[in-house]
């Protein structure tokens, strides 16, 4: 026994190193899964509140840009209002006998921390469980897509940004509705990649790519980016398309968390399909 202690004591430096590394790896294993139902450690109240007070200071510097974005969005909404339309034909009256039911609700939130330089990037928002945020909800900005909620604490939530190696968004080209997948392959935070578009589709630079609405979380038609470069992959008859994101992930300030009110029902039908 004494031999053992002497041995441990002699090489204590190495054993302490191993012990601390084991702690670190336990932390990695427990906290770095991509989509989990548990609360993310990072979204806890302490770091959240420090980021919050840091943000309160820097908010003022962004006021101008934020105002501009909000005004632009208001203008867009005004333009979509019924009052902005004039009936141009009075000969035919069509009775639109449709009733609407709301599918998506939007919660506004503020970005209090974010990253763009890593291979897997996250954001933290100042809304959490108590404000109705749950895992897997979509997050969009006034000008485009942002990411998916992957951890919730009482007053904060963590968002897996589109700039993440595990992120795949089903998207379509706006002008012809062909479906593809948007991923981020690292590098610049301004460019992503659109995969799986067959090579017979006619595309051109500047085409808009939007969400398809086939996912349970993102509404249809959220802008993602524009085509900036494309070429045909040799061998598999699909394009390799680079897109420029509309959202500037470095300047994100105010975003919306989207709640799909039909999600449970849609999930149930998915379950039926898989049986």
């Amino acid at each position: 026994m004494r031999q053992l202690f002497r041995f441990l004591f002699k090489y204590y430096f190495f054993f302490l190193f191993v012990l601390l590394e084991v702690f670190a790896f336990i932390m990695i294993a427990n906290n770095n899964y991509y989509q989990g139902g548990r609360m993310l450690n990072t979204a806890n109240q302490l770091t959240g509140s420090i980021y919050q007070s840091y943000n309160n200071i820097f908010d003022y510097f962004n006021l101008k840009e934020t105002n501009r974005q909000l005004a632009a969005e208001n203008a867009l909404l005004h333009a979509q209002n019924e009052n902005s339309y004039v009936k141009i034909t009075n000969k035919l009256f069509k009775v639109q006998d449709t009733t609407y039911k709301q599918q998506y609700q939007y919660v506004d939130a503020k970005v209090i921390s974010s990253s763009t330089g890593k291979r897997n990037n996250y954001l933290m928002l100042n809304k959490g469980f108590e404000q109705g945020v749950r895992n897997d909800m979509a997050v969009v900005s006034p000008i485009g897509i942002v990411g998916i909620v992957n951890g919730v604490s009482n007053n904060f939530c963590s968002v897996m940004s589109l700039l993440h190696s595990e992120m795949k968004i089903t998207a379509k080209i706006k002008k012809n509705n062909y479906l593809g997948t948007v991923v981020w392959e690292g590098g610049s935070y301004k460019t992503g990649t659109l995969l799986d578009i067959p090579s017979h589709v006619v595309i051109s630079k500047g085409d808009t790519v939007i969400t398809s609405g086939h996912s349970l979380d993102f509404p249809e038609g959220i802008p993602i980016g524009t085509v900036s470069y494309f070429k045909i992959n040799q061998g598999d008859n699909t394009y390799k398309i680079n897109i420029t994101f509309f959202t500037d992930y470095k300047k994100l300030d105010y975003v919306y968390i989207v709640r799909n009110l039909f999600k449970e029902e849609q999930l149930k039908m998915k379950g039926v399909q898989h049986e």
Partner: peptide, 19 residues
């Protein structure tokens, strides 16, 4: 790590250089 959403990674790397 607490602040940057990388639970354990900075810890592992800095313990390694401490060693």
């Amino acid at each position: 790590d607490l602040f940057s959403n990388t639970m354990g990674m900075h810890t592992a790397a800095s313990v390694f250089i401490g060693f």
